[in-house]
Amino acid sequence: MKLPKFLYKHIDGREKALVKKDFREMWQNMAVRTMLVIVPLIFVVLLPIFFTILANSLPNSSLTGMQQMRGLISDKQSYMNNRQLLFYVYSDCLGPMLYLIVPLMTACVTAASSFVGEKERGTMATLFLSPITAREIFNAKLIGSVGISAVCSLISFVTYAIVMTIGDVLLGVTAFLTNPSWVVMVLLLSPALIIFGALFMVLVSGRSHSFMESVQICGYVLLPLILLFVGQFTGSFRLHAVHYLVLSLLLMVADFIIWRITSAHFTPEKLLQ
């Protein structure tokens, strides 16, 4: 299977070979393959479809909890009936969180396979014995896992956009298409999260001994993301495009710092302990 050209436009033949090999190994690994397919399928296809169906089948009569839910929307959306309200709240509060799980999880899983998996199989030492520097190995592996996660996230977004637009049409609202936060999320937050997830895996790869162990550690990275959106859902605060922008910039700064730390510590002695 060939990778898109943009993934190895700026890398040399040796790094290209490494990226290709990593991609192949990831695809051969049932756990990675399943996660790359199942996670997006659940979070950007099945759950949105489920909520669309749920919203469509909701009675328009007064329901317990709907009044509290109305507290989550602005006056502009006060015209909405119960069905539209449920779909709008999902689209605005829960949907972004579920979508953002995709770049984070795929980055963690691919980086775990690439970095920890290599160590687990005892092939990291062999790579370090090749005429390729530790920095080149690090970069090639990072480019590979970030690239695959980016492709996966982009496909997920397009799929999600299609599903949610159908929902918008079916329920007669403009919940998804008019939300400017998505532009920031797709162009800035999602890439920053992908790099964060991949670098976090590199950071823990020195201590992790198996692919599955490192995937379990992914849970810790997901926790702040979940809390951020649970807070929104309970009405404690609301995130808008500008908040996502600030979050993205903060995450990029964190990415840069972690990148400096991890690349400096990516040495045979530290990795092969």
């Binding site: 033949g13 040796r14 192949r24 190994e25 199989r121 092939t123 030492a125 062999t126 390729i132």
Partner: peptide
């Protein structure tokens, strides 16, 4: 490592690839 090849028991080959694919990969990496 361009001038020196090393064989050590801790340096494994890729189990999911054939022998020839392994060598071709390490050749490209070289």
């Amino acid at each position: 490592h361009k001038l020196c090849g090393t064989v050590t028991p801790s340096a494994n080959m890729y189990g999911g690839m054939t022998g020839k694919e392994n060598l071709a990969f390490f050749g490209e990496a070289a």
